[in-house]
Each structure stands twice: as C-alpha cells, then as structure tokens.
Amino acid sequence: MAPDLNFGLVLAAVLSLLALSYVFGEHPLLRVMLYLFIGVSAGYAAAVVVQDVLLPQLVFPVLDELFGTPTLDLGELGIRMALALLLLAKLFPKTARLGNPATALLAGVGAALAVAGAAQGTILPQVAATRNIFDVTTLQLALQGGYYLDAIEVIFSGLLLVLASVSTLAYFHFGATSRGKQEPQRSLLVDSLAWLGSFFIAIALAALFHGVLLAALAALVERLDFLQSTLRLLLGMP
C-alpha cells in the first residue's frame, strides 16, 4: 500500500538523508538528528510507561479506592503504593537508603528468575542435545543401506562438533601449574586444544559479524526503498 504524502513522510525522508550523510563525515546536522532521535525515543518510552503502567496500575486503582469503587484489594494496593514510594525515595540523596529494600527485591527476584530460567531453558536442553551428537540411527541406516559416504559424513560432523566443543572450552581454561622456579604454564594438551579452539571462536565471531552486516544491509535497502518511493510521490511518478 503506497503511503500518502504528508509532513511526517517528508520529515522522515529528510532525517533518513541526514543519517546517510554520515558517508561524508560528521557534521552538525547529523548531530541534531541523533539528539532528536534519542530525545524522541526517551520521551516516547516515558509516555508509554505513564499511560500503560503508572496510570492503570497505580493511579486509577487509588482513585477508584477513594471514590468508593475499589478494583483492587486494599492490601495489594498498599503494597504497590509502599514499593512505589520507596523507589521514589531513590531520587533524593537523603532518602535514597529507603529505596534499598524495593531495589533489593527487584534485583533478587530478577537474579533468581534468570538463574532458574537459564538452567531450565538453556543449559539442560543443550546438554541433553549432545547425546545426539553422533546420529546413531542415521548412521546405522546408512551403513545398512550401503550409503557409506553418508555414514562418513555423520561420523565426521560428530567428530567436528566434539572437537569444536572441547577445544573451545579448553581455550577458556586458564589453569596452570608451576614447576620449580619456572613460570606457571598450561599443559601441552590444553595449550594445543586452546590454540585449535581459537579458530572455532574466530569462526563463531565471524558468523555474528556476518549477521550484523546482513541486518545493516537490510536496513539500508529498506531506507533507500523508502526514499525512492517518497521521491516518486513528490515528483508525481507512478
């Protein structure tokens, strides 16, 4: 659906051109655009928090309680009010210590959820997945059917995964033993595996960088498409 030409569209096109003008280096208009983006983002986030969090979850229940139409239990409302006031005390240096219990509650609950969630959702499923690192079923079928190349591929991929996992873990093993007056050194086996692990780490980082480049390129494609379509609208072209 082609957008209608309006002020917002033209403003967005101008700001996009300012962002792309970074090709020619920094200039004051680029900084103005950055400040505008940061300010609008922060202001919008604050407005959303007030409208969707503070008003419906704190202010409106208090007003309902005052006008005799309670929508929340009085105890729950009291707890909300107390925690909010304690957090508000963090704004002032003299009363900042009063906000520590509410902050500690937030940090403690967050840490507990993160640890439990990481164990249940990340570590255990991925450790369990290593049981299938050698696809035994596929290997048996390949051997029975005479597909020896496929069988070799299964074995090779399994070995590669094992080698990559062990060598990457060895790279982050910093234990060393000292012999006599010599400096502490890692064992030869761990040192060799760590050297090999550095290659796999480089490949992983390259994959991440590749993803970032693809994301940037996709964003560039979308902005240039927006600019050319806006220009068509301005010029009255189909």
């Binding site: 991925q126 992983a204 994959a207 991440l208 993803g211 970032v212 693809l214 994301a215 996709a218």
Partner: peptide, 10 residues
Amino acid sequence: SAQAQPLLRT
C-alpha cells in the same frame, strides 16, 4: 533480525 540467527540456532 539476521543478527540473532547464530545465537538462536542452538
């Protein structure tokens, strides 16, 4: 986004 794919593949 494409940048999240390597992390989520696990």
